[in-house]
């Protein structure tokens, strides 16, 4: 009898621990808190424009973070995000025609490029077995160079159709950006329940054991990098819609922010733990943080300092929640 009571108690303790260790819930709570502060400080925070703005500003980073999470789950780092975002952005600002056809054409082109870069990363890491940081650093440099070739200084024009439609609202007030974000979340929930989705977590936790359990570890990693590349391209696409112009250095700030968003979203850099939704919320949190700092009158000079500190704190909190979740001490 008492054994089963103890057992139940143990299980309850375990589920509480897991709840505390759930990064997605934590980041959602942080976002809510930050939003309350924002709403208190900023009179028009709850206006439709302000909300649409929040979604529009957060989406590009959220997409990049979603892609990065896939790679981090396999215990890798993908720096190519900076290059792919920039390359997609300058392409959208230069070679794409206007109208729905142009928008689709652009979408096909940038996702194709993202896929290609992701595939190169995937081959280098999963099959050639180079270190992920090193090989994605190289592809990041190459893609940034290509971005400079397309457009050597900020400028260019993103077609109005893309810039207007994708930052607008549909169905009487729902931001397009929110619809896209929701679509990505749904897609992730589906992917997560496929064999590949499960394998992603397995490979990140222990590649050897995953192999012994019959998982084609290399293919799983390869696909993670490919899909990540597509997400970065989408991020560049949405960034173009937001800024309506091209900038070959657009990706630079993404390197830090993407990883900060992933860390805040509760994804562990040691692999096998975390969630795409958390990372997207993390991106939204970072965007909101900027707005809150701005409304608090903090000089934009110091935004970097805050971002850097938040990033380090996020990693520390993620490590702590990791520890709580797995019940380890010290």
């Amino acid at each position: 009898m008492s054994a089963s009571v103890a057992n139940t108690r143990q299980r309850t303790a375990m589920s509480i621990r897991r709840l505390l260790g759930n990064g997605t819930l934590i980041v959602a709570a942080i976002y809510a808190l930050l939003f309350v502060i924002f709403a208190l400080r900023q009179a028009d925070a709850l206006s439709r424009n302000s909300i649409v703005d929040l979604f529009n500003n957060a989406l590009p980073l959220a997409l990049a973070a979603a892609g990065g999470t896939l790679v981090v789950l396999t215990r890798g780092f993908d720096l190519s995000v900076a290059g792919v975002v920039a390359l997609s952005n300058v392409l959208m600002a230069t070679v794409v025609g206007d109208g729905p056809a142009g928008a689709l054409e652009g979408l096909a082109m940038v996702t194709g490029i993202g896929l290609l870069v992701g595939a190169v990363n995937g081959v280098l890491v999963a099959y050639v077995r180079l270190q992920s940081i090193a090989s994605t650093l190289a592809t990041m440099i190459v893609t940034s160079g290509l971005a400079l070739l397309v457009l050597d200084a900020p400028g260019g024009n993103v077609p109005d159709f893309v810039a207007d439609t994708l930052t607008d609202v549909v169905a009487g007030g729902i931001p397009v950006a929110a619809v896209i974000a929701l679509a990505v979340v749904l897609a992730w929930l589906v992917l997560r329940r496929t064999d590949w989705g499960v394998a992603l977590y397995a490979v990140g936790a222990d590649e050897t054991a995953a192999g012994l359990a019959g998982i084609p570890t290399r293919r799983v990693m390869f696909l993670a990098y490919c899909l990540a590349g597509v997400f970065y391209a989408l991020s560049g696409y949405m960034l173009s819609a937001l800024t309506a112009t091209g900038n070959p250095n657009a990706g630079n700030s993404y390197l830090l922010l993407t990883f900060a968003a992933i860390a805040i979203g509760g994804t562990s850099f040691s692999g096998g733990r975390g969630d795409v939704v958390g990372a997207m919320l993390g991106a939204a949190t970072l965007t909101l943080l900027q707005k809150v700092l701005f409304s608090a009158g903090v000089s934009s000079f110091y935004t970097g300092i805050f971002q850097g500190i938040v990033m380090i704190l996020a990693v520390l909190v993620a490590a702590l929640s990791d520890r709580i979740a797995s019940g380890r001490r010290a």
């Binding site: 394998a199 397995a202 222990d206 359990a213 084609p216 733990r273 797995s326």
Partner: peptide, 14 residues
Amino acid sequence: LLPNLSVATNLTLP
């Protein structure tokens, strides 16, 4: 076995 997955998932991998 993968520690971060459930018994059921481990048993049915891949």
